[in-house]
């Protein structure tokens, strides 16, 4: 063994010894410290963006507590927490010029009523159709489904114009039914629920068949309970979509007592828009139902969207 070889062997041994030593004590602490500051920085950035996101809402709520003079002054803060604006909208004084021609509570009720009816009907008809497409086998099924799918690609505007003419012919213009019936059937809802129902194992159907259950029993007692997350997702989508719906109600509704909130708010803005504090109170109240739905059912919403069910 030459000296160089012996040297290199010694070096190797030394290296191995070094490798087996515990790492220097300062290093993990420093890494952890860096991680801590890093995540603190991320927190600060996220909080800053969050503030930007809610800033308009903060301004809205604060303005809704102001008096008329305050609402056009520079500061953001009202001088006191006043509920008068809300009172003026919910319990209007017939002599009050500020709320003349307005019927806020009625609009609120109309919106909730129409959106609830549409949601119930649409979820029900979509669930039935989705069951037929996902769990039953019948000749021509896939062709019909393809037809459904292909209509989802069409812009909603294409159908609006002939539907308006149909509503005129049926005499449903300016009625609740004119808002509810066309929205009660949805290719999107059928598609969404079908995707959910396809994930339920097929063995359940066979088990139900062996037990002698009818198709209706299978639908009602087996598939529907298992498709609950999908039903809730569709319920949220439909309810919010109809609560916010603007184009169709704007076209259909003529009399103020039948307005839904979006149409009513537009009317309010154009006729009494200089009452900034009242307008903000109205907008705040109209957002509250959405906030409730959002906070209570957020879990389902996020999951539904991430499953690839994106509307529009």
């Amino acid at each position: 063994m030459s000296t160089t070889e012996r040297d290199s062997a010694r070096v190797h041994a030394a290296c191995e010894e070094v490798a087996m030593l515990p790492p220097p004590r300062g290093v993990p602490g420093a890494a952890a410290q860096r991680k801590l500051w890093g995540s603190l920085a991320v927190h600060v950035v996220l909080a800053a963006i969050s503030c930007v996101m809610i800033l308009p809402f903060v301004w809205m709520v604060l303005t809704s507590f102001k008096t008329l003079d305050e609402s056009f002054a520079a500061g953001w803060l009202p001088s006191a927490l006043r509920w008068e604006n809300y009172g003026a909208l919910l319990n209007p004084d017939p002599d009050d010029l500020r709320t003349r021609g307005m019927n806020y509570l009625r609009w609120y009720w109309n919106s909730l009523f129409v959106a609830s009816c549409v949601t119930f009907l649409q979820v029900f008809t979509s669930a039935l159709a989705a069951f037929s497409f996902a769990r039953l086998k019948w000749p021509g099924r896939d062709k019909v489904f393809l037809l459904y799918l292909s209509t989802m690609m069409l812009p909603g505007l294409v159908m609006m114009i002939p539907n308006y003419q149909i509503m005129i012919t049926l005499g449903l213009v300016d009625t609740y039914w004119g808002l509810i019936i066309p929205a009660a059937f949805s290719a999107f809802g059928t598609f969404l629920l079908r995707q959910f129902m396809l994930t339920i194992p097929a063995s359940l159907d066979e088990a139900a068949e062996i037990d002698g259950a009818s198709k209706w029993r299978l639908f009602w007692d087996v598939i529907l309970p298992l498709a609950r997350p999908g039903l809730i997702t569709l319920t949220i989508f439909t309810f919010i979509g109809n609560y916010q719906s603007f184009f169709w109600p704007l076209v259909m509704l003529k009399s103020s007592s039948r307005y839904t909130l979006p149409v009513g708010l537009l009317f309010f803005d154009s006729s009494q828009g200089q009452q900034l504090n009242l307008l903000m109170a109205g907008i705040t109240m109209s957002i509250i139902p959405m906030l409730l739905v959002f906070v209570l059912l957020q879990k389902y919403l996020v999951k539904g969207i991430q499953l690839g069910a994106v509307k529009g």
Binding site: L128, A129, L136, W138, F185
Partner: peptide
């Protein structure tokens, strides 16, 4: 199959 599809397809035909 069509019975389950029924309510939906009537609406589909009428409004789509």
């Amino acid at each position: 199959g069509l019975a389950f599809l029924g309510p939906n397809i009537v609406g589909f035909l009428c409004f789509t």
